[in-house]
Computed example of a mutant assay.
Amino acid sequence: MPKATFNKLKPDKRKQFTDAFLREFALHSYDEASLTSVVSELGIAKGSVYQYFADKLDLFTYLVGECGAVKARYIGHLKRTDFPDFWLYFRALYEHGVKFDLENPLQSHFLHKLVDNINSPSIQHLYKNMLDQTVTVFEKMVESEIAIGKFRRDIPAKTQGFFLYKASLAINDQLLALGEIDTKKSIEKGLPVFHKKEEVLLRTVDQYIEILKAALDKR
């Protein structure tokens, strides 16, 4: 967590500092991200980072929390019970996620890179914890759908939840692999991840939903 000295910075200085590190972690893996290059760019002493945070991991963890909180303002209000079926809810998460991306490109790029970042050798111990937490969220979604008779019961919720989680990753992986999005170019230009590709993303989501419905919906 940030030290008191960071919280005492003027808002514009705090934002400048935060944005610079969001960009660095979005462009490079955790282990490759350089504190030295960022502080050089900002024109501050490297020691300033340690006046604000205990270490690199402390700074990274803070950024994870901050970006997650921003995204939660866009999708946190969505409730499954407000939708007639799970798949409309699932699609809505992406629709509101697109708005988050367009309005908060740096935070979106940081979160887009997060899975790769926590796979960095020096912080791989965090990967299992984050994976377990994320998969549990999907598993709970599945359990709720099974309970109301929407999803099939013959496959364990844990398996269905993990499959749903992997499908959500595959959507982005497909767009990257097919060249529909180029995160390196977009962040270098200060553009959102899905700049002018919003319709492509949602069309791909719809295609995955058809596959997922066939696999998970109660027969």
Rank of each mutant, 00 (worst) to 15 (best):
Q160W: 10
S144P: 00
Y30D: 08
Y62Q: 05
V205K: 02
L59T: 01
R203A: 08
T18I: 10
P105I: 09
T134H: 11
E139M: 09
A157I: 10
L22V: 03
D132C: 06
P2S: 13
L178Y: 02
R23A: 04
K113C: 10
T136A: 15
L102C: 03
A4D: 15
P121Y: 12
T204R: 06
K56Q: 06
G149P: 11
E180L: 01
E66Y: 07
L114K: 04
Y52C: 11
S48P: 00
K140H: 12
K56P: 01
F194V: 09
M141F: 12
S168G: 10
L164H: 04
R219G: 06
G43N: 09
I211D: 02
V115P: 01
R153C: 03
H112C: 02
G97W: 05
E210M: 06
K150T: 14
H109E: 00
A26Y: 02
R203H: 07
T36L: 12
K158Q: 15
V137S: 11
T81Y: 04
T136M: 12
L27I: 07
S40D: 15
F60Q: 07
F138I: 02
D101I: 02
I123R: 03
P84G: 05
A69L: 04
L111Y: 06
I123A: 04
R80G: 05
E41P: 00
S48M: 12
K8D: 12
S34N: 10
